[in-house]
Design a protein around this nucleic acid. Structure first.
Length: 274
DNA sequence: ACGGCCTCCTGACGGC
DNA sequence: TGCCGTCAGGAGGCCG
């Protein structure tokens, strides 16, 4: 489900309800996620105060001082707030984890496909195996055209696959890769190494723009994404190419081409992108 | 080091 | 109605 804008929307939606509160109770109904949920999660968290929630790529980082919960939503995961009497709402079939805080507030995790993960670490985050190799955050100055241009030299892989590689830049998933390439006028299948410096600059600009716009709109809701407060995202109606194969290009009306790249659905305009 | 492919899992949908 | 194949917003891991 979530790419960077949806994860960021989730973070912004849940943090005000949770930060500063102590954990009262943890309920893990199904520990079988991508990796097993730590068996001692309850003893690690109960009584601890949540100091803040940060994000690195698509990982949410819950800072409890003595350690950090790394929470990844995978393909179909979502987090939402239960409050007041809602804390007693019965868990649905795919509601695998509740973290119940003081003050009648709970965080509930739903993940039908269970590709998500919840891990605990008390080591420095930049040394964690899942985080240490990650590329720059796309919305910071660490990610710029010069960086993308240099790193794409001699890379034969398709530019779309390249920008979806978390070692190159984090947070760009299939929706926003398609959208950014359309906005930059670049065909998804072009070799990364064939980008000119100017096109690399343009692509970086468009990646930043599309992600920022999507965050402003509360993310993209395709089926059931909500931002932690139950509200859907409104970016889906602004998608130019993703999910629009065969439909007319919004710029030139040419029917959009749909193909597969790296086994991921890929849509582009043969007229506008070269 | 790189590129391509597989895998984990459930659910929705289209075709027969 | 049901069965089967395909596809879905991720990304680590393996193989050549």
């Amino acid at each position: 489900m979530p790419e960077l804008p949806e994860v960021e929307t989730t973070r912004l939606g849940i943090a005000p309800h949770l930060v500063g509160r102590k954990v009262n109770r943890v309920e893990v109904r199904n520990a079988k996620l991508r990796w097993p949920v730590p068996g001692d999660l309850s003893s690690l968290l109960v009584g601890q105060k949540l100091k803040g929630i940060q994000r690195r790529g698509k990982y949410l980082l819950f800072d409890f001082g003595r350690g950090v919960v790394l929470w990844h939503l995978g393909m179909s995961g979502s987090l939402r707030i239960l409050s007041g009497s809602g804390v007693r709402e019965p868990a649905a079939i795919h509601d695998h984890i509740d973290v119940v805080f003081a003050g009648k507030v709970a965080l509930r995790y739903c993940d039908p496909r269970r590709f998500g993960a919840l891990l605990w670490t008390s080591d420095p985050l930049d040394q964690h195996a899942l985080l240490s190799h990650l590329g720059p955050e796309p919305l910071t100055d660490d990610f710029d055209g010069d960086d993308l241009f240099r790193r794409s030299r001699k890379r034969k892989t398709a530019i779309k696959t390249f920008i979806m590689d978390s070692k190159i830049v984090v947070g760009v998933g299939n929706i926003y890769a398609n959208e950014a390439l359309f906005a930059a006028g670049i065909r998804p299948g072009k070799a990364a190494a064939s980008l000119t410096r100017a096109k690399a600059e343009r692509l970086v600009t468009e990646i930043k723009l599309v992600l920022q716009r999507a965050i402003t709109q509360g993310g993209t809701t395709l089926r059931d994404f909500t931002g932690g407060d139950g509200k859907p995202g409104y970016f889906a109606q602004q998608l130019a190419v993703y999910g629009r194969g065969g439909k007319p290009c919004r710029v030139c009306a040419t029917p959009l081409t749909e193909t597969r790249l790296g086994n991921r659905s890929t849509v582009y305009c043969a007229q506008c992108q070269s």
